[in-house]
C-alpha cells in the first residue's frame, strides 16, 4: 500500500482547493435560504455564468493580442471582479423575475420556478455561445503565471492555481464575514433572515435586503465560477450542475442558512471527495476505484444527516413567529 506522505499532502491540497470552491458556491445557497427559506436551484448557473464571463474576457484579450502584454495578476483580478459583478446582478435579476412574483405562493412553486430558471439559463448561455463562438465548449487560455508552482519542502509542489483559489476564497470569506457581521447592511441581512416582519418594523426595506442577499450570494458564485475556470480550464453551460449539487449538499451538511456552516460543509465535502478519489482504490485493493468518490462522499453526508439532521453547525433557521 502506497500511503506515502507526499501523496497524502497532495491529496490534502486538492481537497482544500475543491472544498473552498464548494464553500464559495454553497454560500449562495445558504444565504438565500437564510432570508427566503427557499433553495435557489438556479444558483449553479449563476456560478457557471461567472466562469463564462471570465473566459469571454480572456478570449477577447487573447484575440486582440493584449493578453500577453497585460500584467497577469491584474488580468486575474479583473476577471474575478467582472465575474462577481455579472453573476451578482444576474442573481438579482433572477430573483426579481422568477421568484419575487411568487412570494407567498406554496413552497413548491418557487422551487419549480428555480428549476425552470436553471434550464433557461443553461440553454441561454448555450445559445449565446453557439452564436458567438460556434461552440459552447470553451477553454480558458493559458496564463503562464498560473502554470507555475512553488515547492513546499522536498515533497509537495503547490501550483499557483491552487494558491490562487485558496487565497481568493480566504479573502472573499474574510470580506463576507466582515460585511455580514460588522456592517449595517450585513446586520440587516441577518435581521431579515431571523424575522422579516420585525425587520420591516425597524425600517429595513426587506425587498432591497433580499436583492442585496442575492447579489452577494451570486457574486460569491461568480468568483467560484472564475476560479473554477482558471483551475480546471474547461467550461460548458452544463458545467455547473455537479458542482452546484455538491455545493448545495455542502450547505446542507454545514446547516442550511448558516454561513460558517457552508464553509465548513464545503471543506468537509471537498476533502472527503479528494481522499475518496485517491485512497478508495488503494485501501480496498482496487475493489472500489476513484469513480466511487461521490458515492463515498454522499454516504458520509447521509450518515451525518441521520445523526445531525440540522447539519454540522445547524440551528433553527428561523424562530417561530408568535
Amino acid at each position: 500500500m502506497a500511503l506515502s506522505l507526499d501523496i497524502f499532502l497532495q491529496v490534502l491540497m486538492d481537497g482544500i482547493v475543491l472544498g473552498f470552491m464548494y464553500a464559495l458556491i454553497a454560500l449562495g445557497y445558504t444565504m438565500v435560504y437564510g432570508v427566503l427559506e427557499f433553495i435557489n436551484f438556479a444558483h449553479s448557473e449563476i456560478f457557471v455564468l461567472g466562469a463564462f464571463v471570465g473566459v469571454e474576457i480572456l478570449l477577447a484579450l487573447e484575440s486582440s493580442g493584449t493578453l500577453a502584454a497585460l500584467n497577469p495578476a491584474f488580468v486575474v483580478l479583473m476577471i474575478i471582479l467582472a465575474g462577481m459583478i455579472v453573476s451578482g446582478l444576474a442573481a438579482v435579476a433572477l430573483e426579481r423575475t422568477a421568484y419575487r412574483p411568487l412570494r407567498g405562493a406554496p413552497r413548491l412553486v418557487p422551487l419549480i420556478s428555480a428549476i425552470g430558471a436553471s434550464f433557461f439559463l443553461q440553454d441561454f448561455i448555450r445559445l449565446v455561445e453557439s452564436v458567438w463562438h460556434n461552440s459552447f465548449y470553451l477553454s480558458y487560455p493559458t496564463l503562464s503565471l498560473l502554470d507555475r508552482s512553488v515547492r513546499l519542502g522536498a515533497m509537495v509542489e503547490v501550483p499557483f492555481k491552487s494558491i490562487l483559489v485558496i487565497a481568493t476564497a480566504l479573502a472573499m470569506l474574510a470580506g463576507l464575514y466582515l460585511f455580514v457581521n460588522k456592517t449595517r447592511l450585513g446586520t440587516a441581512i441577518r435581521a431579515v433572515a431571523q424575522d422579516p416582519d420585525a425587520a420591516a418594523l425597524m425600517g429595513i426595506p426587506v425587498n432591497r435586503i433580499i436583492s442585496l442577499t442575492f447579489f452577494v450570494g451570486g457574486a460569491m458564485g461568480g468568483v467560484a465560477g472564475v476560479l473554477f475556470g482558471l483551475h480546471y480550464s474547461l467550461v460548458n453551460p452544463y458545467t455547473g450542475f455537479v458542482p452546484g449539487l455538491k455545493a448545495f449538499t455542502a450547505a446542507v451538511l454545514g446547516g442550511i442558512g448558516n454561513i460558517p456552516g457552508a464553509v465548513l460543509g464545503g471543506l468537509v465535502l471537498g476533502l472527503m471527495e479528494a481522499f475518496a478519489a485517491s485512497y478508495l482504490g488503494i485501501l480496498t485493493d482496487g475493489a472500489f476505484g476513484a469513480e466511487y468518490k461521490d458515492v463515498f462522499a454522499f454516504v458520509i453526508l447521509i450518515l451525518i444527516l441521520i445523526f445531525r439532521p440540522k447539519g454540522l453547525l445547524g440551528e433553527k433557521v428561523r424562530e417561530e413567529g408568535v
Binding site: 441577518r190 435581521a191 424575522d195 420585525a198 420591516a200 418594523l201 425600517g203 424562530e319 408568535v322
Partner: peptide
C-alpha cells in the same frame, strides 16, 4: 412598513420579536 417607520411611527410588536441571534447591542442598532 419601512416607510412608515421613517415617518416617526415605531411598533413594538406582540411577542417582542427581538432578533434572537443578534446581540443586544445589534438589536438596538438595528
Amino acid at each position: 412598513p419601512h416607510e412608515i417607520v421613517r415617518l416617526g411611527v415605531a411598533h413594538v410588536p406582540e411577542g417582542r420579536r427581538i432578533f434572537p441571534r443578534l446581540t443586544v447591542l445589534e438589536n438596538l442598532k438595528i
